[in-house]
Simulated scan of single mutants.
Amino acid sequence: MTPAELEKAALALPGAELSIKWGDDRRYVVAGKMFAATDGASTNLSMKMTDIAFETLTETARARPAPYMARAKWVMFNDVSGLDATEVEGWLKTAHELVAAKLPKKQRASLGLGV
């Protein structure tokens, strides 16, 4: 997956925005809540996962627990270019849904996320 494909997939999600923080790190957020992040060059990728996906990806060494965020079931992939675009798009969608599900009903509705 290229950095451009990653950005396009993340920003295609309802209410998703790009936020640059911590120097040049790229954070993908919904209502200000982060669901994925990359370094400035978009070489690595961290994102929220379901409990099962977190265990599977870290146990098989496809990803590692994300620094500072592993307790919240975030993983880190060290090489975005080696990832399958379709698979990443699915993970981004799930990460977005997990974070958006914790938003208040009114906020989800205003972002077109359903209730």
Results as ranks from 00 to 15, higher is better:
Glu17Asn: 08
Glu17Gly: 12
Lys21Ile: 10
Arg26Thr: 01
Arg27His: 15
Arg27Ile: 12
Arg27Phe: 15
Tyr28Trp: 01
Tyr28Leu: 01
Val29Met: 05
Val29Thr: 12
Val30Gly: 03
Val30Cys: 07
Val30Tyr: 03
Ala31Gly: 07
Ala31Ser: 15
Ala31Glu: 06
Ala31Arg: 07
Gly32Gln: 02
Lys33Gln: 12
Met34Ser: 09
Phe35Met: 09
Phe35Pro: 03
Ala36Thr: 01
Ala36Tyr: 00
Thr38Asn: 05
Thr38Leu: 08
Ala41Tyr: 04
Ser42Lys: 09
Thr43Pro: 04
Thr43Gly: 11
Thr43Tyr: 04
Asn44Gly: 14
Ser46Arg: 05
Ser46Lys: 04
Ser46Ala: 13
Ser46Cys: 15
Lys48Phe: 02
Lys48Met: 03
Met49Gln: 15
Thr50Asp: 14
Asp51Glu: 14
Ile52Thr: 15
Phe54Thr: 13
Glu55Val: 13
Glu55Cys: 07
Thr56Val: 12
Leu57Pro: 06
Leu57Ser: 11
Thr58Phe: 10
Glu59Ser: 15
Glu59Phe: 08
Thr60Leu: 00
Arg62His: 03
Arg62Gly: 03
Arg62Leu: 06
Arg62Thr: 02
Arg62Lys: 06
Ala63Tyr: 05
Arg64Gln: 12
Pro65His: 04
Pro65Met: 05
Pro65Asp: 00
Pro65Ala: 08
Pro65Glu: 02
Ala66Val: 02
Tyr68Gln: 10
Met69Arg: 08
Ala70Thr: 01
Lys73Asp: 00
Trp74Tyr: 06
Met76Arg: 15
Met76Val: 13
Met76His: 04
Phe77Asp: 01
Asn78Met: 11
Asn78Leu: 13
Asp79Cys: 04
Leu83Ile: 12
Asp84Ala: 08
Asp84Leu: 05
Ala85Arg: 02
Ala85Leu: 09
Val88Asp: 01
Glu89Gln: 13
Glu89Val: 03
Gly90Asp: 10
Trp91Pro: 09
Trp91Thr: 04
Leu92Ser: 00
Thr94Cys: 07
Val99Glu: 06
Ala100Asn: 02
Ala100Phe: 01
Ala101Glu: 10
